[in-house]
């Protein structure tokens, strides 16, 4: 149990530190802060042009979605990247608890995603017409944190697929941008065709963003508990799927000797 906890905690932190580029401000600032900032501004102005909703709609949607920079890209690079750095074989040769091993890699990305999201909210407040009710801020913080965790569960699946695909970005890029389309980030689900909205409802972020919008608008936390519970359940379901996939790919790769095949 203690070993599993060590693999979860220390292993997770070390794997995050192994994203060497992300430790450098010259990389982190443009990618993890600059990109989200300009994404929020772009969609807020697009919203003004399209007359769909107000700035607050686009700020909340995009500020929550940008956590996928860490949740999706970070997980993809952490797990899928093991193959590129030739550390996958030694890693899977260890007797370490697999659940602790992979979930530990998710923890730093949840924290990172939350930081990116918080920066998005502050930028929206400073630069656009977004002024959330102060009374809703504690609940909003909790919902954003839980949504980041849920998104990272989905990122684990992307990372698992990265073990199979030649380039992990072939999966993570469309995943990130599809979220902009189907998760209610920029378009209300009611404006999408039924099948696209159904995909959005099965993905993380969708319910979290809806809850965050209501909280920013002054709704009490008790009124969004159902949405938050759904968001958490969806995140857990994706994390479970990722675990099954990772174990399956591990077994298959051992059987077919394709673990390091690029």
């Amino acid at each position: 149990m203690i070993n599993a906890a060590r693999v979860f905690g220390i292993g997770g932190v070390i794997s995050y530190r192994a994203l060497f580029n992300w430790q450098s401000p010259t990389y982190y600032v443009p990618t993890m802060l600059g990109h989200p900032l300009f994404q929020i501004l772009f969609f807020a102005y697009l919203g003004r042009f399209s007359h769909v909703r107000n700035d607050a709609f686009f700020v909340v949607g995009n500020a929550v979605q940008v956590s996928a920079m860490a949740g999706v890209y970070g997980m993809a690079m952490t797990i899928g990247g093991e193959r590129w750095t030739a550390t996958l074989s030694p890693l899977l040769a260890t007797p370490a608890n697999r659940l602790a091993l992979f979930l530990g890699r998710a923890l730093p990305q949840i924290v990172n995603g939350f930081v990116v999201s918080a920066f998005g909210f502050v930028s929206g407040w400073a630069l656009l017409d977004f002024h959330p009710k102060p009374s809703g801020l504690p609940a909003l913080t909790l919902v954003v944190a839980l949504t980041c965790a849920s998104c990272t569960g989905f990122g684990l699946v992307v990372g698992a697929l990265g073990l199979r695909f030649r380039d992990v970005f072939t999966i993570s890029n469309p995943a990130y941008f599809l979220m902009l389309l189907v998760c209610g980030v920029n378009i209300p689900l009611s404006a999408l065709p039924g099948w696209l909205a159904a995909i959005g409802r099965a993905l993380p972020l969708t319910h979290g963003i809806e809850a965050a919008r209501k909280l920013a608008d002054g709704t009490a936390f008790a009124d969004v508990q159902g949405l938050v519970a759904t968001e958490v359940a969806i995140g857990l379901a994706w994390a479970f799927l990722a675990y099954v996939m990772l174990r399956f790919f591990e077994e298959e790769s051992r059987r077919r000797a394709t673990l390091e095949l690029l």
Partner: peptide
């Protein structure tokens, strides 16, 4: 594959997003 995928899929997502956004905004 990545370059072609990015050159085709990402713009299609943005095109679809813009269609629905402009439709929703009448």
């Amino acid at each position: 594959g990545l370059f072609i995928f990015t050159s085709v899929i990402e713009p299609l997502i943005f095109a679809t997003l813009s269609y629905y956004l402009f439709k929703a905004g009448h």
